[in-house]
Design a protein around this nucleic acid. Structure first.
Lengths: 193, 193
DNA sequence: AGTAGTTTATAACCTGGTACTAAGACTTGG
DNA sequence: CCAAGTCTTAGTACCAGGTTATAAACTACT
């Protein structure tokens, strides 16, 4: 399929091929590069590239982790205290799925998620949606740390509840958010406003 | 490992197990449920659940877009366009993990996550953190819908960037967020303010 | 006890590999 | 030109995690 290439050339191309499509089997690669499967295997060994299944598995696991971690159950973090309609506390351990690989700093939306789901959990109703939020990140949170979020309903107007969430690591504030959540139970849930 | 269960019970549990960890082999499942591997296979057949490798492959393929953007892996949603320092677009399909089980409405923090990670991706730097955000949810988003987030840097002051993200479903706005992100490359990353 | 539904066991086969050996093909030095 | 060394290929044995098909064993019920 390909003209003659030097070994380094071929290996570079092999890496290229896998970068654009990591789901190629050895024989597909062999065919593409015009060499035997055996050669491909040797090249993979030399370049320390794992087999197809391993590649798929790691890609799957990494991306699956992101979504799952964010999915959680109903509340992101563990609910350790909850007084419906008043206040509550949740705790979230920072796992490696929640941080930037580069610097191990927690990604903002996980702090938001913890706060948001706690705010929603506070309201004693079937269907509660977030209408708006104003949030601020004070300090970076790192891998392995334990984030404690405390939330309280500060006021309410009809079906609207104003919830303040403050999150701490070692008693130092790292996040604060003011959430406005709406109880839409009974209504069709057609709109948030 | 488990007490006796009726077949429907077992099958429900099987689905549960795989929902929380899709990387279980048949014999791990068999062991967990206290039945033979053969039974697990029959159950998988009946429930139309593919084998481990197939599961891994599809999970991997689904989240592995052809996006070749540098920060691609770190973004919630699929980056479909990115002009560093200027603007970008990402698309996120709403899966059942992102919605409230009760009403199939997307949980707010996923919209936030999409917006936040897009905002961060826009800035051309090694380390970028979110400092604050002001967000508003206009309309509920439902299971199966496709959220298109468009972001642009509206202004910047030194290392601070103001990014506006607007998300749409069928050309109707569902979310808007104003993010302030800070480029902390070079600094120790010790603080966000 | 008879019989249907359910579960288990058994064997043959498949993919995409690993690990290893042996031999063939291509360069390169002298 | 030929031998030595390097690349490449071929071939075998083995593995995980299955599929497919068939037969045997275990309930449960009447």
């Amino acid at each position: 399929m390909k003209p003659k290439q030097s070994r380094p050339e071929r290996r570079r191309e092999l890496q290229d091929l896998l970068r654009t499509d990591p789901f190629l089997t050895d024989w597909q690669l062999a065919d593409e590069l015009g060499v035997s499967v055996a050669t491909i295997r040797l090249d993979r060994m030399a370049l320390d590239i794992p087999e197809l299944r391993e590649r798929a598995r790691t890609i799957a696991a990494s991306t699956y982790g992101q979504v799952r971690a964010l999915h959680g159950e109903e509340v992101i973090g563990e609910l350790i205290e909850l007084n419906l309609g008043q206040n509550g506390t949740s705790v979230l351990m920072v796992t490696d799925q929640m941080v930037f690989a580069r610097n191990q700093i927690m990604r903002g939306h996980f702090l938001f998620a913890q706060g948001n789901s706690l705010a929603v959990a506070l309201v004693d109703s079937e269907i509660v949606l977030t209408k708006s939020a104003d949030v601020r990140f004070y300090q970076p949170v790192h891998l392995g740390e334990r984030v404690v979020a405390k939330a309280g309903i500060t006021s309410s107007q009809g079906r609207r509840y104003y919830v303040r969430v403050s999150s701490y690591v070692h008693d130092e504030i790292v996040f604060r958010g003011d959430f406005v959540v709406v109880d839409v139970a009974g209504k069709g849930g057609g709109d948030r406003d």
